[in-house]
């Protein structure tokens, strides 16, 4: 595990959210404003949502092979009376807790634990609810040695096969493959100020402009905000946040999120399992833009 207190993604310090100031005083938030909101230190995290949306939650630990990964939280709960499994990235609040959670960046065993819990859900016919909030899967020597790429790839393939309903929500940072590895759902939704990207704006700017201070331009160019991704057909729904962001009102943010999960489950829960698997396939099959 890393020792430094600042989360690093693609070598870029992504902790400058400590002082959030919108770029423009009025008008809709810019892409970079959304990035800062998504990384806001007071934003509700997976366990905050679980506490407010679910009953009887108990956590399931470990991948049964190597370790338990605190950056990925999994467990069983009741959602409005119905048994479900919940899976989500978890960031920490205090410096110590942030280190313990590795800034929400899972190791391969985090993804393998998530898959184990999904297969548990499959066995007992429980819907899978996931919350996505990670800068990315952890890029380190140990992660590579234990097959970070394989762990993510395997989840992508196996999630496509699940017969139970899968509802995924990007609640904060949707950081590339590390986000998608718990994001292959029948319904994929985003909170209003969440972002979902193939690379961090800082990482993209460092590669394309050779200058990570160009991150706001990269954030704009990458089209990573919820409304843009809705227009591109990558997400199905944008969930509004209370006031100027979910950090202001955890209860109301959770209520809105809970209601949207309820509606999504009602929709995909009504389908037969085989229909659901086909519909999920078709949903991702359509993604992409090209000419022919």
């Amino acid at each position: 595990m890393q020792e430094n207190a600042h989360p690093k993604v693609n070598g870029e310090d992504v902790s400058e959210f400590d002082a959030f100031e919108p770029e423009v005083e009025s008008g809709p938030p810019t892409a970079m404003d959304r990035v800062r909101l998504a990384r806001h230190p007071d934003r509700p995290y997976t366990l905050d949502f679980i506490e407010r949306i679910f009953d009887d939650f108990f956590e399931m630990h470990g991948d049964r092979a190597f370790a338990d990964d605190p950056a990925m939280v999994c467990g069983c709960a009741r959602f409005r009376g119905r048994p479900v499994v919940v899976i989500g990235h978890q960031k920490g609040r205090s410096t110590r807790d942030r280190q313990h959670r590795n800034f929400g960046m899972p190791m391969p065993e985090g993804y393998r634990k998530a898959l184990r819990v999904m297969q548990f859900a499959e066995k007992f016919g429980m819907p899978v609810i996931t919350f996505i909030d990670t800068p990315g899967a952890y890029p380190g020597i140990d992660a590579e040695e234990r097959g970070q790429a394989e762990a993510i790839a395997f989840n992508l393939r196996e999630m496509a096969k699940l017969r139970v309903p899968v509802v995924c929500t990007v609640t904060g940072e949707g950081g590339s493959g590390g986000a998608l590895a718990i994001g292959v759902g029948d319904v994929v939704q985003m909170l209003e100020n969440a972002v979902y990207s193939v690379i961090t704006p800082e990482g993209c700017a460092a590669i394309l402009w050779k200058d990570s201070s160009q991150a706001p331009r990269a954030a704009e160019a990458l089209r990573i905000t919820a409304p843009e991704l809705l227009a591109l057909g990558i997400v199905d729904r944008v969930i509004p946040e209370p006031g100027d962001g979910a950090h202001n009102d955890f209860d109301e943010a959770s209520r809105l999120l809970g209601d949207s999960i309820d509606e999504a489950l009602a929709k995909v829960g009504a389908m037969r399992p085989e229909e659901r698997v086909i519909a999920r396939y078709e949903k991702f099959r359509r993604m992409g833009r090209y000419s022919e």
């Binding site: 790839a153 393939r157 979902y196 193939v198 990458l222 990558i234 099959r285 993604m287 992409g288």
Partner: peptide, 25 residues
């Protein structure tokens, strides 16, 4: 993944893996 196509590129990972799920089955 190709940065210039943003999250659309990311979704190709899911698309191909879903096809491989069928191949596997």
């Amino acid at each position: 993944a190709r940065m210039q196509e943003g999250t659309l590129s990311l979704m190709q990972m899911a698309k191909i893996s879903a096809a491989l799920a069928r191949l596997d089955e």
